[in-house]
Amino acid sequence: MTTKVLICDDSNMARKQMSRALPDNWPTDVTFAKNGQEAIDIIKAGGQELMFLDLTMPVLDGYQTLEAIRKDDLPIMVIVVSGDIQPEARERVKKLGAIEFIKKPVDQSKISSVLSEYGMIGGDDA
């Protein structure tokens, strides 16, 4: 079964790094957004299941995006991926509804262990 994944980051390089860090044998359909507003529009159009969300972005940053998702009760799971490794940042995004926080630069094993923890991939894939 293919999972619909949305990757939201203002950096083209970070978007590529993120999509490369997804488990090789995990069937996904990946969509990209350059800022939070683009992501919200894509989520509202429907079908997305999981979003990897950066924090520091123009237009609508990661915190504002999480607030918008909560306000409209949009059906999507969010994993924040950020270089902002202050403990406060992690706490804030969890409070705003993110299921997990992964620090940049991302690595494949961390992504795999988080995905298997949430049952999105089988233990064998991790």
């Binding site: 390089m13 970070a14 270089g83 902002d84 202050q86 940049k104 630069p105």
Partner: peptide
């Protein structure tokens, strides 16, 4: 430019964590 910005983004996050 995007690449330097992203590299800096990660590095400044580490620096901010120390200052925080």
């Amino acid at each position: 430019r995007d690449c330097y910005q992203e590299i800096t983004n990660v590095a400044m996050g580490q620096a901010a964590d120390r200052l925080a």
